[in-house]
């Protein structure tokens, strides 16, 4: 990255450095020892034994990550176990899977997905390690290749000073080290602050994030959730402009699902080092198209040299194209 020579803001994309996606497992441990930004792993890259933390800012983020996690499991012969917080009927707890094309009723009936409101009980965290050990063995006994556990952590069960939570997470480590199980512990960052989450990083193998929308040698495109949009890292040129076009198209659909008219799309460009005229023109035409239906394309954190390019072409004055400020999101991991 330094080779390309662009300066990266300390916050990184969406407050994290997407560059950490590129870390291998060995490097993740090094990063942990140095106590820097926790390593990020795309959910699609998770392997058996992984015990990752998801700090999420929006329900869409949690649902996107957990859905990928469980659906990947169904596709690879794992059983999915959802340890839910509340005493919700299983079908209701899994509606976010239904909307992503999963026949939830069938999967529940076949036992490929199970929901256990265990964490919702007052003693939920006390024997979590035992529950996961038992369920993993049961899944293997039932002929599955492994178990995927999705755990939503509730504030109420965390104990004074999160002591109960720490002890519980600590006890999970040997389970993940010895059995074919992988898990995601979900923490709502609107409830747990960064100061509380930081020590918990040491009890996980890193943090998990949604899969990248695109990655090649030059460019990573990630989905952001709070606020929703896309973040671009690297360079866009003639070789990968099509990937950007495709990502914009999918993002438009995602935004339309949120609001029918006045669709606004936000691109975080703080980590964009280079964009050529052809790719900028794509953004201009996307903005013009959004504008016809009352929408806007917001470019956030555009570097001065890219702003200059936009001035020279007159693309700084396009209806439907707005330049946002590049401030770091509140609550970002730095």
């Amino acid at each position: 990255m330094t080779e390309i020579g662009y300066s990266s803001s300390p916050g990184g994309v969406n407050g994290r450095s997407v560059e950490t996606f590129r870390h291998t497992e060995r490097e993740i441990w090094e990063v942990r020892e140095m106590e820097v930004v926790p390593a990020l792993r795309a959910v699609g890259e998770m392997r058996a034994g992984d015990h990752l933390l998801l700090g999420y800012d929006a329900d869409e983020e949690r649902e996107t990550v957990v859905a990928s996690f469980l659906l990947d499991g169904l596709a690879s012969g794992h059983r999915g176990l959802v340890l839910g917080p509340a005493d919700l009927p299983a079908e209701l707890a899994l509606t976010f899977l239904e909307s992503r094309g999963c026949a939830v009723d069938d999967e529940l009936a076949a036992g490929r997905l199970t929901v256990d409101p265990h964490l919702g009980t007052p003693e939920g965290l006390w024997d979590l390690d035992e529950v996961i050990r038992r369920e993993t063995r049961r899944a293997v006994g039932d002929g599955y290749l492994g178990l995927r556990v999705s755990m939503e952590i509730m504030r109420g069960q965390a104990g004074k000073g999160l002591k109960t939570l720490h002890d519980s997470e600590l006890l999970l480590e040997p389970v993940f080290a010895s059995l074919p199980v992988l898990g995601i512990c979900q923490y709502d960052r609107r409830v747990f602050d960064d100061g509380e989450l930081a020590p918990l990083d040491g009890l996980h193998h890193g943090r998990v994030a949604a899969d990248l929308v695109w990655r090649d040698e030059l460019l990573s495109i990630t989905r952001t959730f709070a606020p929703p949009g896309l973040a671009l890292l690297g360079e866009v040129d003639d070789t990968n402009v099509t990937a950007l076009a495709r990502a914009l198209q999918a993002e438009t659909a995602r935004a339309r699902a949120r609001t029918a008219n006045g669709t606004s799309i936000r691109l975080d460009l703080r980590e964009l080092a280079f964009i050529d005229v052809g790719a900028l023109r794509l953004l201009v035409f996307s903005a013009l198209s959004l504008h016809t239906s009352g929408g806007t394309l917001v470019l956030h954190g555009v570097a001065p040299h890219i702003q200059r390019l936009m001035r020279v072409t007159g693309w700084d004055r396009i209806p439907g194209l707005r330049l946002g400020k590049g401030e770091v999101r509140e609550g970002a991991i730095s």
């Binding site: 080779e3 390309i4 020579g5 040698e217 030059l218 360079e235 040129d237 003639d238 070789t239 280079f274 050529d276």
Partner: peptide, 9 residues
Amino acid sequence: SAHVRHALR
């Protein structure tokens, strides 16, 4: 083109 940009930088 990325190679060219790199060399130029």
